[in-house]
């Protein structure tokens, strides 16, 4: 009935400090929001406004202070192991910081094969899967034996996307995916993301502070300001 849907209901997050004098810092409050099954929603806002936190809570990596994240109509905190594992796989997140996006102590090959092992894909099929994915993200397999410090930021980013795609997610939350790349590489990355979306039919929540990038990627844009979400006036072309 609910098929695929990812939304939040009255989500709030605040931090409190100390117990002699309690200071509560409200990040955002009572946000109800839906990420579409296909297409991109952009989320903008000044640094520190809580966009990343919002993204992480939706991905299940942080706990909200109150409110719910609903996947297929159910609060993710109430999901049983099997359903939760499905949620984990179908809702993925990509982080900023290309330098820290891959384990510096693992070869690229190891970083990719561990995801395949997680999915219980037998060794014989792994080689073809890797070849497919590398094709998809535009990488050659000669980097397999290298370490993250031996490849460029853009390539690291692509590996990260590749790993995520292996899980065949329905939603990807992208947290400033291009902010650390220089403009030429940025453009390539954005095009790659768009291609992936049209091929895999994933829903994106695109978080960035860069207005032009958000406008390029999204159909609808929201702005996080003063703890609330407002629909942006400027629509995309």
């Amino acid at each position: 009935m609910f098929s695929l849907s990812l939304k939040t209901k009255d989500l709030s997050k605040s931090y409190s400090n100390g117990f002699i004098r309690k200071k509560t810092n409200e990040v955002f409050s009572k946000i109800s929001f839906e990420i579409p099954a296909e297409g991109t929603i952009g989320l903008m806002g000044p640094s520190g406004s809580g966009k990343s936190t919002f993204g992480r809570i939706i991905a299940g990596l942080e706990m909200p202070t109150s409110g719910q994240v609903l996947y297929k109509g159910r609060d993710i905190r109430t999901l049983k192991t099997g359903d939760f594992r499905e949620f984990r796989q179908k809702v993925q997140m990509m982080f900023q910081d290309p330098a820290g996006i891959l384990n510096p102590k693992k070869t690229i090959e190891k970083s990719v094969t561990e995801v395949l092992d997680l999915l219980n894909i037998p060794k014989k099929r792994q080689k073809t899967e890797i070849a497919d994915i590398f094709d998809q993200v535009g990488l050659s397999d000669e980097i397999l034996n290298r370490y993250p410090y031996q490849i460029s930021g853009g390539q690291s980013q692509r590996i990260a996307i590749g790993r995520i795609l292996l899980l065949k997610p329905d939603y990807i939350i992208l947290d400033e995916p291009t902010s650390a790349l220089d403009s030429s590489v940025q453009a390539q990355m954005l095009h790659l993301l768009k291609d992936i979306q049209s091929e895999f039919k994933t829903g994106y929540l695109f978080i960035s502070h860069d207005e032009s990038v958000v406008r390029f990627m999204s159909e609808k844009i929201f702005v996080m300001e003063n703890g609330a979400l407002k629909k942006s006036v400027c629509q995309t072309l």
Partner: peptide, 13 residues
């Protein structure tokens, strides 16, 4: 808090 550990948690390891 690094990207790869958060990714790993996200992927369900």
């Amino acid at each position: 808090e690094t990207g790869f550990v958060m990714s790993a948690r996200c992927m369900g390891f």
